[in-house]
């Protein structure tokens, strides 16, 4: 599903965000990528949805080698990967419904399909009754659920969540993780980038640990090993 082969990412003049990273994530896996701030975990996520391009190495998603992806191909890639961010990245002047719809509208989905899919996804994230609200009228947890709904609406095979609980309290963070687990159970590959020890330990899923831009451990049913 996702294969990193000897991937490095350098930022001039001397920053080496990732060095010789090789990683294989199978379809349907739930992988937590952990590491301290500045370890390179977010860079790894950004390479997945082509916000950054690798300096060296090869990244393949499905059959698509995205190592040298053209700018014009990036929108197509992003329509196939669900992305969830720590700061939600919702469009402030669009309602919950419109935020979720937007991801389908830019992909050219028909009105009929949008009318069918969006309410289903909002139901999954538990926001059917708040579809007409604007992001500012929602709590942090609710905003993150909108963000997840937007990421899911394409029915992506991969969901990348970069610190999705970073701005949430423990209860809301737990809700979001449960939601991600549910999504994973439906067959979506989930890549969770986090530095939250409790979440990682509670998940009991595969854990890839990054330090100084290198993978230092990769354990099935792993734990948060950094101090």
């Amino acid at each position: 599903m996702i294969r990193f082969s000897n991937v490095s990412k350098h930022y001039p003049p001397t920053t080496h965000a990732l060095q010789h990273v090789s990683l294989h994530i199978k379809p349907g896996e739930f992988v937590s990528v952990v590491g301290q701030s500045g370890s390179g975990k977010t860079t790894l996520a950004k390479l997945l949805f082509a916000e950054e391009q690798a300096t060296k190495g090869k990244i393949v998603i499905g059959d698509w080698d995205i190592s040298g992806i053209k700018q014009s191909e990036v929108p197509e890639l992003r329509r196939q990967i669900g992305i969830v961010f720590q700061d939600f990245k919702l469009l402030p002047r669009k309602t919950v419904l419109e935020n979720v719809k937007f991801a389908l509208e830019v992909a050219g989905e028909s009105r009929v399909r949008i009318r069918k899919i969006v309410p289903q996804v909002l139901k999954i994230v538990g926001l059917s009754d708040k579809h007409a609200r604007y992001p500012r009228q929602l709590s942090g947890g609710e905003q993150q659920r909108v963000s997840i709904a937007r990421a899911l609406v394409h029915r992506p095979k991969i969901l990348v969540a970069d610190e999705p609980t970073g701005n949430l309290d423990t209860i809301h963070a737990h809700e979001i993780i449960q939601l991600l687990k549910k999504i994973n159970e439906y067959g979506t590959t989930v890549v969770l980038v986090t530095h939250d020890r409790d979440i990682v330990n509670a998940l009991k899923k595969r854990v890839v640990t990054i330090a100084d831009g290198k993978i230092v451990s990769d354990i099935q049913r792993g734990k948060y090993i950094l101090s």
């Binding site: 890639l77 992003r78 990245k89 937007f102 830019v106 394409h154």
Partner: peptide, 16 residues
Amino acid sequence: RDEIGIMKLVGANNWF
């Protein structure tokens, strides 16, 4: 500017 970035992140092409 933030909205433009978000639109791009959810797969909108430049024309859109």
